Every structure is written in structure tokens, then in C-alpha cells.
Amino acid sequence: MALVAEEVKARAEVYHGDELCKEKSQLLLKEVGLPNGLLPLQDIEECGYDRETGFVWLKQKKSRTHKFEQIGKLVSYGTEVTAYVEQNKIKRLSGVKAKELFVWIGLSEICVDDPPTGKITFKTPTGLFRSYPVSAFEVEEKVKEVKENKEVHVKETVEVKETNLEEKKRRGMLI
């Protein structure tokens, strides 16, 4: 079942592959003022963004259930997630459900009040809603951590090599 028409794909930014799609979806969320951990999808095959209309889609190999630990909520992401994004808001959301007691309820809208430290509100098509702290949906950026660790490792390696050189010079091993 293809939810995205070819004419939409033709004018959109389209990406393929899990790693690139995760990166692009997190960047988009940050760009529109939403927490970067809002879409914890895995095995993403395709994602796209039509900047003109705000239409976004993500396709993953299989449905996924994720528990947001800070709030203790289970959220189910279907194989295709679509929405329209604008600043601090996701509208006309499809493919996402939250578990409330024993029932899975479809979500239709997500908005952030007073970003970035405020509340994030999830709404259903029937008008029901729940609000939580934005921080419950943020994840640390692993790319920065890896880069910083590499820089520290390189710095330590250079310092060790310089120390070894100085030691050899002191002992008269190097001229």
C-alpha cells in the first residue's frame, strides 16, 4: 500500500536507507521545533519531506512498538507514518498509536507549547489529549559523542607520541 503519490515524491526531498533516514528525520524534527526522539523508528527504508506543503513520510520494514521510559507510555509506529509538519506542530498524523490502559488509540496531532522546555501535547481525532514534558522525547545525539570521543582519542595519541619522542631525545636515542 503506497500512501505517497509519485507527484509528491517528484517535488520532495527523498532519502533511502536506515542510517540516512534516521539522521534526516531527527534534523527535520529539530528544524521544526520538535524533540528529536519523537520518531524512534528502525529499519527505515525511505523518508521524504515536501517543504512546499510540509508533507512528511517514513516507511519502515515492519511495525514497531517503543516505550518512552520517562513517562511509561507505549507507542506503536506502523510501517508507514505520514504527517504534515509546521513550526512546533505535527498535523494529520497517521500510522502512530498510543496505548492508553488496554486500548491502542490513534494519534492525529502533536504540538509543543513554549519550546524547548515546555510541554508536548498528543491529540486524538476524537479530541482527547495528553501532555508530557518535552524532555521525555529527546535523545542525546550520538554523532557528537562519537566525534568528541575521536577528538579526545586523537589528542591523547598525539600527546603519547610527543612524550615518547621527548623521552627518546632525553635518552640520546634521537639526534
Rank of each mutant, 00 (worst) to 15 (best):
M1Y: 12
M1D: 14
A2I: 14
V4M: 11
V4Y: 11
E7L: 04
V8C: 05
K9E: 00
K9W: 00
R11D: 00
A12Q: 07
E13D: 12
E13A: 11
V14D: 03
V14E: 05
Y15K: 04
D18K: 02
D18I: 00
E19V: 04
E19Q: 08
L20R: 07
L20M: 14
C21G: 05
K22N: 12
Q26E: 15
L29N: 13
K30H: 08
N36R: 13
N36S: 10
G37P: 08
P40F: 15
P40M: 11
D43P: 02
E46M: 06
C47I: 04
F55P: 02
K59D: 12
K62R: 05
S63C: 04
S63I: 02
E69I: 15
E69S: 13
I71Q: 12
K73G: 01
L74R: 11
S76A: 14
V81F: 14
V85T: 12
K89H: 10
I90G: 05
I90V: 15
I90A: 01
K91H: 06
L93V: 08
L93S: 12
L93G: 05
S94V: 07
S94Q: 13
F102N: 09
I105S: 14
I105Q: 07
G106P: 08
S108M: 11
E109N: 06
E109H: 04
E109V: 01
C111W: 05
V112G: 09
P115D: 03
P115C: 15
P116D: 09
G118A: 15
K119H: 12
T121E: 01
S131M: 08
Y132R: 15
P133V: 03
E140T: 14
K147I: 03
N149G: 02
E151W: 07
H153V: 06
V154L: 06
R170Q: 07
M173E: 11
L174S: 07
I175M: 08
